[in-house]
């Protein structure tokens, strides 16, 4: 830099080459030049944006790794339990309602209710579903009323202060198989059959897990011992589950003629349970697609309006127009 600024021409350069010490005083000064030696690479290295994006990239990679493999990278971990004790990871099944704007298959819900009624309801309650919830989802009002009337509910007290039994109304909730938890445990060798109202929301893997569980009964592999009265299921945390396999081909007879294979019944009952856990599911997706359309339209419009409002401010030029002296 110094040399370049000092060099006034080929003659001077020649002079310098001949004897550096013989430079005239006028040229032998040090220039305090403020012209920055900016190179694009240096400013790229020093910019905040680079720093921020590199940090973000690093944090993102670590987070992604953790998400994929379940542990932080470069840190050795020792587990007290074997991975099989957390159960197999259920596969992703192609549910008819899996997409962003896909509703439940309501015919499947109706079949699933039949499976629940004929198979699951022997042990599992469905406390949060009332007969009226089926209306407009899987059954007509008359069907729901007829189903409710098949069940006797205790009501009262009447004029004499006595409790009495009456046929169910559609405002009543589905009856459970056991009067209380103790009775349920006593009837199932100490294992409590969970209430199924929210089971899809209450288990990791949701509908995939429930489907994998009820279709996943296999013989225990070599070396795995299952206690008497328990059953082996690789998808269940721990492997040993109190519930035995219940779904077998042809167990129920569907009213719409669908072949009642094990997987068909499992798919229907899981769809039904998914509906029971998320009755708002269809409306939610419908409102979701509306909200996405409306808000993205609003975003684009507001960007336009912002530009429109700022245009006169951004390209404003301030000019000094001195007043004219009247004397001239």
């Amino acid at each position: 830099m110094l040399a370049r600024q000092l060099s006034k021409g080929p003659a001077l350069s020649a002079l310098r080459r001949k004897n550096p010490l013989s430079i005239p005083r006028a040229f032998a000064v040090r220039n305090a030049s403020t012209a920055s030696s900016s190179s694009a690479f240096e400013s790229f290295l020093n910019s905040r944006l680079t720093l921020a994006s590199v940090s973000l990239f690093t944090a993102g990679s670590v987070a992604w790794y953790t998400h994929l493999y379940g542990s932080l990278p470069f840190l050795g971990q020792v587990h007290a339990s074997h991975a099989s004790e957390e159960g197999l990871h259920p596969p992703d099944y192609p549910w008819p309602h899996a997409g962003l704007i896909d509703t439940f298959d309501h015919a499947s819900i109706r079949r699933g209710y039949q499976v629940y009624r004929e198979v699951c309801a022997a042990c599992h309650s469905l406390d949060r579903i009332a007969w009226r919830n089926f209306v407009g989802v899987s059954h007509t009002v008359d069907e729901a009323r007829a189903m409710a009337e098949e069940v006797e509910y205790q009501d009262g007290p009447d004029d004499q202060g006595e409790m009495f039994m009456r046929p169910g109304k559609i405002a009543d909730y589905l009856p459970g198989p056991y009067p209380n938890e103790e009775a349920a445990r006593a009837g199932n060798a100490g294992a409590l059959p969970p209430d199924l109202s929210l089971i899809v929301k209450a288990r990791h893997g949701g509908a995939n897990y429930v489907y994998a569980l009820i279709t996943g009964y296999v013989d225990p592999p070599a070396g795995v011992e299952v206690r008497e009265g328990m059953n082996y299921n690789p998808f269940f945390p721990g492997g040993a589950i109190g519930m035995a396999r219940v779904l077998f081909d042809g167990l129920v007879e569907y009213e719409d003629g669908t072949p009642a294979t094990t997987s068909q019944m499992a798919k229907d009952v899981v769809t039904f349970l998914h509906w029971a856990a998320e009755p708002e599911h269809d409306d939610r997706k419908k409102n979701g697609i509306k909200a996405v359309i409306l808000f993205s339209t609003l975003t684009l419009l507001s960007l336009y309006v912002k530009r429109f409002k700022w245009t006169p401010i951004k390209n404003r030029k301030i000019l000094y127009d001195p007043p004219v002296d009247k004397k001239h």
Binding site: D102, H106, R110, K286
Partner: peptide, 18 residues
């Protein structure tokens, strides 16, 4: 939006099988 939604989910909703 409802028309599109119903078209997309044709045959699946309750009103289609009622």
């Amino acid at each position: 939006a409802t028309a599109f939604f119903d078209r997309w989910n044709r045959g699946k909703q309750w009103k289609d099988i009622r």
